[in-house]
Design a protein around this nucleic acid. Structure first.
Lengths: 221, 221
DNA sequence: CAGTCTATGATTAGATC
DNA sequence: CGATCTAATCATAGACT
């Protein structure tokens, strides 16, 4: 009797053309990755987040203990140590972020000063309440969140985000201009970046017919 | 002649006790997951981000096209479709975010109004420049980023982040108080959450001796 | 620690339902 | 679309360097 199937066949790691086959492979392999992530979690006590966008931009994710916790840790650098550079040596975040910590202190001072200024301004406003701007700018509400309703708060988030992006862009510009690529608030340096369709030999792996590769690269948060 | 090795042995998926073994397993399996993520990327044109914190809180990540792009897409919902609910039906983000889009429009109006107010205020300031607050609040700089140096910008980022977090916390509070858990800007609903050490049977998988499991759960961004 | 080496367990490509 | 089936490929546990 003939074999029921040919069994698994070797495939090249390159873009699948057959779209239905691609869909099936996507589902199977995505599930496989999530399973492996779960196993890593249990076996090694690791926290893991996996986010996958399909080519049709559907999003799937896995997270332990939950995805937001991991993303927060990543973005706020709650790691006590970061892997830095090609050799992957450990650097305490505290040291790495020295500059940032100082900036934070300065900010605390700035905030205090700001509050004082605000108080002064309020007093001035009382005195000059005939001014048409006495209702204040929208961002004055920062100091009085309690009065905001949900809708307003949502707008707030939006506004602040926009501003933040502007600032971030400006900072980046300045850093490049100054040639001072000093550490960002919390860099995640031991990153394995995907380099699709490498032309040369895989510089890290050992496969012969490599269609893609990996590389470590420092980068900013 | 005796076999050189016993070959791979079956292991239970449970916390590894031997710490050196744990370390080796962590490295091997982490690499395996990154490789699989890369293959998924190439085979299926998917964008993937993987973040792993070791039990010692060292962080490793993989991202295609790069991790920040994926995280941004995730957090800002740049997906055109989201998988929603247990059945995983598609919902256009546009519809899902209708509320948010409206808020955005309102914000645009608000911003315009704000600019006008700012201009008015500036004129008033000219008139009343004897006021001690004529140098403005720190957030007034928002409109003049070009004058900020890098250090200031860094402080800025910090300040805005803090404010944003306050607002986010307040929004969440309000949502709970109102009982209106209306859609967050872009909820990621088709999430596979890890439930370590499930006591009962795996409600999704088929393994008999399940040590851990997965579950889908809606949640907020 | 990071690689190498196997034998073996786990994953999965393709077909079929 | 998903679930099942099977054989073959792939990943990796443990031992060693």
């Amino acid at each position: 009797m003939s074999k029921k199937t040919q069994g698994r066949k070797k495939i090249e790691i390159k873009q699948l053309e057959n779209s239905s086959n691609k869909q099936v492979t996507f589902s199977k392999r995505r599930a496989g990755i999530f399973k492996k992530a779960g196993e890593l979690t249990v076996l090694c006590g690791a926290d893991v987040a996996v986010i996958v966008f399909s080519s049709a931009d559907k999003v799937f994710c896995y997270g332990h203990p939950n995805i937001n916790a991991v993303l927060d840790s990543y973005q706020n650098g709650l790691s006590s140590v970061v892997k830095v550079g090609d050799n992957g040596s450990d650097v305490p975040v505290a040291e790495f972020n020295k500059e940032y910590v100082e900036a934070e202190k300065e900010f605390e001072g700035l905030k205090r000063k700001t509050t004082e200024m605000k108080e002064m301004a309020d007093e001035k406003k009382k005195v000059t309440k005939e001014m048409s701007v006495s209702d204040g700018f929208w961002w004055d509400e920062v100091v009085d969140l309690g009065l905001m309703d949900e809708r307003e708060a949502e707008q707030y988030l939006r506004a602040l985000k926009e501003v933040r992006q502007k600032v971030a862009a400006r900072v980046h510009e300045l850093k490049i201009l100054n040639g001072t690529m000093t550490g960002p608030p919390v860099p995640m340096v031991h990153q394995l970046c995907h380099i699709p369709f490498m032309t040369a030999k895989n510089c890290f792996g050992t496969d012969q017919d490599v269609q893609f590769g990996y590389g470590y690269c420092g980068f900013e948060t």
